[in-house]
Amino acid sequence: MPQSSVLTISDELLRNRGAFVARIESGEATALTAKTLLITILLSGAIFGGVVGANRGGLQILYAAIKIPFVVLITAALVTPVFSTVRIAIDGKTDLRRDTLLILASLALGSLVLVALSPVVLLCMKLEMSYHNLALVTVFCCAIGGLAGVGVFLRGLKAREGTGKGWVFVAVAAAFLVVGAQASWTLRPYLLRPRTPDVVFVRALEGSFIESVETSLNSARGRYTRDYAPLPADVGPLRTRLSEPQTLGEARP
């Protein structure tokens, strides 16, 4: 694929979203656009993941750089059929390719915004912000990226013929929220808690995503639910514990 095409399509997504969406809706956007959007998500997600993983450094940079694009693409793969199905249910017709492109374009723009916000995360690391505050900054960056993506999605939805667009948006947004949150939760950690002794690719499941957000907010305010957090020196016993399911709030003597 010519480099210029990839850059031109990405450039149009950033600078002229109206024309980009019109191209998708008119059926002009084709396999090259899909490929470009996929590559954009992969690269942008990897950059942001690498930056987030840099908080711990070492292998975590690679792990986070692999996981973040996959979280985005898993979400896209699961939400696109929901989008198409809801459109068929409400409007009686759909076009899988246009639906896929619109979802990919939304996520690609969100990913590009994340790359743009990467320096903010790096600055926070440089200022030695605490782990919990850094986690909130990361979530905030993702929220801004998500809002940018929602903008593209809404623009595409408005450009389409048919009825019940509001319901379609509500259904797709709900699916995004649930699937995205769970996918990111399943593939965590990205930042890695400072006291975690070993870098792990995927952590064992503990609680739900909502509970985790609540715990992070409390921890950021200095309210801890555990009496003790393990130190890197506690590697032996911890390795055994990390392989078992854990419950939030569990006291570790």
Partner: peptide, 23 residues
């Protein structure tokens, strides 16, 4: 050789498949 279409299909067939297979 053409930008790893097959590679993208292998990894992301739910998203890229409609553009390469359905055609």
């Amino acid at each position: 050789s053409s930008g790893g279409d097959a590679g993208l299909l292998l990894l992301f067939w739910p998203l890229y498949g409609p553009f390469v297979i359905v055609r």
